[in-house]
Structures are given as C-alpha cells and as structure tokens.
Design a protein around this nucleic acid. Structure first.
Length: 258
DNA sequence: CGTCCAGGTCTAC
DNA sequence: GGTAGACCTGGACGC
C-alpha cells in the first residue's frame, strides 16, 4: 500500500458507506519514484473526485422524497484521468448500442494504447489516435462515421492547438464550457452534457438521450417532454443534472449502500 | 431478407 | 431558431 487517501469535501456527510473513509491504494510491481508516486496520487484524487464538495446538492436532495437517499453520500462519479479520454469515450457512445461503445474503446486501448508491465494497455495518447490509419478506424474499431471525428479531435489535441484539460478550470462558466464542447467534432447537446456531468464536475445540464428519457418515463409512469423534465429538476440549480442522473441510476446502487 | 434503432450529430434548408 | 435526411455499425425483429 502506498497511500491512504482521505475522502474529503463532502462536508459533514459520510461518503457513501461509513466504512469507506479511505481509499486504499496498492501498487503491484516494482517500487516507483517519489515523482511517479505523487503523480499517481494526484491522478487518483482526480479520478475519484476526492476533493468534490457535494454538500450543497445533498442539502436539496434531503428535501426531495425521491432523492433523499442520495444525501448519504452518492454522486461521486469515477472519471477518466484526462478530459480528452472522457470526450473520446463519450463520442463512442453516440448513436450506437453499448456493445458498439465497448468495441470502439477496447480497440483504441488494445491497439493504440501503451502497454503496461501487466500486459494490459492504457488509454492511448492523442498522438497515437491521430496517427492511426483509416484501416484501424474502419476495420478494427469499426467506428463508422465517428472515425474522422476521433482523428480530427485527437490531432487538434496532439498538436497543442486544443487543450481540453483547460475545461477543468473552475473559473470558466458552464455556458462557456458547453459552447467549447459543442464546437468539438462529433459533440452535440447530449455529448456536451455527458462530458460536463461525468468528467468536468459540472452538474447543471441534464443528459437527455435514448436511455435517460425512457428510463425517466418508466420511473414516473408517463412520458415527459424535455422541458417538463428540466422543470422537475430546476430546484437543484447547478446540480440538476446530477439529481436527474442519480434518480435514473438509483437501481444501480446496492441496497445496503443506502 | 428488409427495416428499425441503439446512451446523436451534422448539414441544409 | 427549428426541423428533415443522411450517416457507420450490428443486433433485434418481422416478413
């Protein structure tokens, strides 16, 4: 074990489970340098959002019969090490079945990602994706029309012309971040909202797609327009998207965790 | 076998 | 600003 990372930022709230006050990090293989260790810990803090403060969300959720359970510490979603990785993965979720997303992302990792000592591969660099040939996107990833989106995006990041990691800057307003995301190839309203929610810690936008709409309809017992759904979550302000997501995924949470 | 659609986006009106 | 059509892929479904 190289560290015990305290889970802070949730105010006085327990973090999901009382026993999970620490994330235990074990390193397989040879020792790492102090520099690598620091980098690894910083990356883990980012991925697990250990600094996230959701207490303002919990304060509202506690008053909402359907979401009071979440106030026990839900909503700290795992994210990728980089915004670039989450944007690429999100593009791979658009207009296809989940099996297609898995196929495309697995191909990127297995064929373009740097190998680790374990034999597994990490997510590829932007340069590696930018340099992949047409045959990879067409015959291996079978990404279809998304191939050019992915390569164009990766080339912009690899060249330094585009820095997606800047979107982590808390100074940027949500509207600005959304506009920058919408400007990316293959990123529309769904993908922008998805990246904001799952990668940027910006919870204001509702992720509305062919899974969330019918899932919400099933939970409330009738279909609702997007406007109606937005209205139901307006009380959550900047946490509307998180509230919507948690309501939809309540069934994913083990009963003993809430 | 053809049609539809799955965690949409883009372009052209 | 809103809306039709096209778009890769593959699995489900009806015929």
């Amino acid at each position: 074990m190289i560290a015990q990372l305290p889970l802070r930022g949730a105010g006085r709230e327990p973090v999901l489970l009382a026993r999970d006050r620490y994330a235990r990090v074990e390193l397989l293989g040879s020792a790492v340098s102090e520099r690598s260790r620091a980098h690894l810990l910083a990356q883990l803090r980012h991925m697990f959002r250990l600094g996230e403060d959701l207490s303002a969300f919990y304060a509202v959720a506690r008053e909402d019969e359907e979401l009071a359970w979440a106030a026990a510490g839900a909503g700290r979603m795992l994210r990728s090490p980089t915004v670039f990785e989450d944007v690429v993965k999100t593009i791979c979720t658009t207009n296809c079945a989940w099996s297609g997303t898995v196929r495309m992302v697995s191909a990127l990792v297995d064929h373009l990602g740097p190998p680790a000592p374990s034999g597994e591969h990490a997510f590829p660099t932007a340069a590696a994706i930018a340099d992949a040939g047409d045959a990879f996107f067409r015959d291996v990833a079978r990404a279809g029309y998304r191939g050019p989106y992915l390569r164009t995006l990766a080339a912009s990041v690899a060249s330094g012309e585009l820095d997606l990691e800047q979107l982590n800057d808390p100074q940027l307003p949500d509207d600005e971040v959304e506009q920058r995301l919408l400007a990316l190839p293959g990123v529309g309203p769904y993908a922008a909202a998805h990246v904001m929610l799952t990668s940027l810690g910006r919870y204001s936008r509702l992720v509305l797609d062919s899974w969330t709409r019918p899932t919400y309809a099933r939970l409330v017992g009738r279909k609702s327009s997007d406007k109606t759904i937005e209205r139901r979550f307006r009380r959550y302000g900047d946490f509307a998207g998180l509230a919507f997501w948690l309501l939809l995924t309540r069934a994913w949470v083990p009963d003993d965790a809430v």
